[in-house]
Computed example of a mutant assay.
Amino acid sequence: MKLPATLFIFTIFFNASANAQETPLIAEGAELQLISDGFEFTEGPAADANGNVYFTDQPNNRIHKWSVETNEVSVFMEEAGRANGLYFDAEENLYAAADKHSELWKISPKQEVSVLLDNFRGLRFNGPNDLWIAPDGGIFFTDPFYKRPYWNHSEKPIKEQRVYYLTPNRKGLFIAAEGLVKPNGIIGTPDGKHLFVADIEDNKTWKYEIGKDGKLENKTLFTAMGSDGMTLDAKGNLYLTGNGVTVFNSLGEQVLHIPVDKEWTANVTFGGKDGKTLFITAMDSVFGLEMNVSGK
């Protein structure tokens, strides 16, 4: 099954600081392009080593793939565990926050599924939502509670909504961060030294130092804005979602806002042949925008 690329083009208007105007993040003349639509709710975009972008349609329980070669979208996996956030490891395994049964999945290139986690100390997770894999292979993931219509329970299995850390050898699972209202988006720096966590209900994004064995230290407020999903570019700018896409430099200063003509933007990532296309999942659609900067 393939969904044709949609040819509609939307003009983009943006607000930028003086610094962003000197070195524009958006490619000259670039416009926000609707890549495909007709979904129910898109989420979790993640690019593989070739620049192909995978994303979820959680209500329809599918993972889709946008092809860098054909510019077409096809179904990669049915019965995808109601996957939300996605992330690739160095061996091209696709990891998914699969909240149908509140699990963390590993999907091989042959679509073989391994359930890595489904509980913490005997209690079912609230609903793994988004994840990031550190350079050493350790996995940080958020576990907020969003009541799903396909669950039989209506109360949080775990009172605290936290960030967890799964060790590289997959034998240790620890609480990485707590004291958050509802952690959602998460991303780390390529050097593995810092982690950003968006507390969507507290309207804050926090920055942590990643210490030995994945321990999070020196929690600092990065910006007084929450986010659903998020990503980083190669210059260290952080991209937050919700109302369009809002970009902050490494000092936490807003440098750009990208309007998206949808009620909600859920997540972002960089992909494409040169890694300079910003992919935005927004409600029933996926958009692309050519940038002057590549992803992390």
Rank of each mutant, 00 (worst) to 15 (best):
residue 128 P to N: 05
residue 132 W to H: 04
residue 292 N to D: 15
residue 67 S to E: 06
residue 151 W to P: 10
residue 192 G to T: 03
residue 81 G to P: 08
residue 148 R to P: 02
residue 55 F to H: 10
residue 61 N to T: 07
residue 96 A to R: 03
residue 197 V to Q: 07
residue 277 T to L: 15
residue 244 G to Q: 01
residue 200 I to P: 05
residue 241 T to I: 00
residue 273 K to I: 00
residue 45 P to T: 01
residue 95 Y to S: 00
residue 208 Y to P: 04
residue 131 L to G: 01
residue 103 E to A: 01
residue 171 K to W: 12
residue 35 I to T: 03
residue 23 T to V: 04
residue 65 K to H: 14
residue 269 T to N: 07
residue 252 G to I: 15
residue 294 S to C: 08
residue 28 E to I: 03
residue 195 L to H: 09
residue 84 N to W: 04
residue 82 R to K: 15
residue 14 F to D: 14
residue 141 F to M: 08
residue 206 W to P: 11
residue 119 N to K: 14
residue 123 L to W: 11
residue 80 A to P: 11
residue 33 Q to M: 13
residue 34 L to Y: 10
residue 181 V to L: 14
residue 212 K to R: 11
residue 109 P to L: 02
residue 117 L to I: 02
residue 213 D to A: 08
residue 245 V to Y: 02
residue 196 F to P: 09
residue 50 N to T: 12
residue 153 H to W: 13
residue 275 G to I: 01
residue 88 F to R: 06
residue 242 G to Q: 07
residue 289 L to A: 12
residue 152 N to P: 03
residue 44 G to D: 12
residue 67 S to V: 13
residue 4 P to I: 12
residue 188 G to P: 01
residue 161 Q to W: 00
residue 244 G to S: 06
residue 147 K to R: 09
residue 70 T to C: 04
residue 137 G to L: 06
residue 139 I to W: 05
residue 74 S to Y: 11
residue 231 T to A: 14
residue 68 V to C: 02
residue 115 V to M: 01
residue 12 I to E: 13
residue 19 N to M: 01
residue 121 R to S: 11
residue 16 A to C: 08
residue 147 K to V: 04
residue 49 A to N: 13
residue 269 T to R: 07
residue 6 T to I: 12
residue 72 E to Q: 15
residue 167 T to R: 10
residue 209 E to M: 05
residue 135 P to D: 09
residue 286 V to K: 03
residue 262 K to P: 10
residue 89 D to L: 07
residue 14 F to T: 14
residue 265 T to L: 01
residue 155 E to K: 14
residue 114 S to A: 12
residue 128 P to Q: 08
residue 49 A to R: 10
residue 258 I to G: 10
residue 40 E to Y: 11
residue 188 G to F: 06
residue 171 K to P: 05
residue 250 S to A: 15
residue 123 L to G: 04
residue 61 N to K: 02
residue 19 N to G: 05
